[in-house]
Design a protein around this nucleic acid. Sequence first.
DNA 1: CTTATTTGGTGATATTTATCACACTCAAAA
DNA 2: TTTTGAGTGTGATAAATATCACCAAATAAG
Lengths: 210, 210
Amino acid sequence: MLSKETLKKIFPDWEEGLYDAILKEAELKEAKAGTTLLKMGQNIKSAMLVVEGTIKLYQEGEDGGEYFMYHLNPGEACAVTLVCNYHHEQSQVLAKAVTDIQYLAIPIEFMEKWLNEFKSWHYFVIKTYRSRYEELLKTINETAFKNMDERLEFYIKRHINQFGPSVNLTHQEIANDLNTSREVVSRLLKKMENNGWIIMNRNSFDWIKK
Amino acid sequence: MLSKETLKKIFPDWEEGLYDAILKEAELKEAKAGTTLLKMGQNIKSAMLVVEGTIKLYQEGEDGGEYFMYHLNPGEACAVTLVCNYHHEQSQVLAKAVTDIQYLAIPIEFMEKWLNEFKSWHYFVIKTYRSRYEELLKTINETAFKNMDERLEFYIKRHINQFGPSVNLTHQEIANDLNTSREVVSRLLKKMENNGWIIMNRNSFDWIKK
DNA sequence: CTTATTTGGTGATATTTATCACACTCAAAA
DNA sequence: TTTTGAGTGTGATAAATATCACCAAATAAG
């Protein structure tokens, strides 16, 4: 398990008792890069707080397509899992580990209890929902108003914001995240290369614009 | 001002003290159908709780386009205005009254205070964020995965869910909400009419499918 | 080294959506 | 009644995106 000190660094501003409760009730889990942590429709049995690594949150289409919404980083939590009062509540998102990760899994029976018990937990839940809501607004804005070239640019910028200017994604992976096809991504990236926005290598490219 | 009884009917499950606080601090405002209640980028100075009528929430594009996200009904609140700790926080949504409405405006300086003071307020905020987050997920799903014909159908269904099977919207209004053009909406509605899904009248149509 | 697989490039074509142009109809106003 | 304007219908065309087909380069596997 984590030390209380580490916990405090990752999740600051909590009450002492909340750290103790976490240490007592939460399970520290690990997952390899690429693992699916939560599928759409799956019953939620525990809340998920990120300790180490990055998670990507998706919306899943009926046809099986995926649409990337936002990243979750250490100190953040998966909003949908935070307020589940009943065991039969189903996930409306798809969550995947993009790096090897560590996360705290807290059985959902504590959610209601801790809301009553710890003011700092209550604030944490609200802060989480608020920030995720804002991420969704940005995603909607991109999706509803922008063409694929701009959406690709936005996507790349979010990626380099997370992992630095070198992008190690295949065109196919990007296409999946944007719910488009590889050919479209290839052509748009080629255009960006011609514009001098990126330098392409095999299996990766570097963002140099601005 | 509203009576406490009316308030309790519209916003059930609150603490007695919260009703009193609302009666003391909130201002009951009215607005005509069509009024813009909140623009994107505008400073938020009060929280907005719907008492009567329906509000439509939009995301606004840089080019001035609008994209409909969800409805707000009596007993619901505008999530973005609920957690504003500072006076310079700007709205990321556009809110318009679609009918004549009444709403409670609560100066944002009470938000932080009431979070501490009233457990039921805390729950209300979380419940609000949670339900709005879910609405956004649905909107993203429609926008990212569906073609215009399906999005139009979804849009109409949400509308009739609010106002009944007779839809009194011009093609232009629908086009604005879906960020497309009138011609596209006209053609798709014509197709629905041919399929026997709707009956068209001038300035309105009726949904009969299913 | 040779072969197989993954990844990327690109033309051709189809589909979807946007845009432009203009005609028609109804209803309200003059 | 005539006029005006808002709302709608629809063809033509353009632009964006999706899909198909196939090839080439790089890498991994044998």
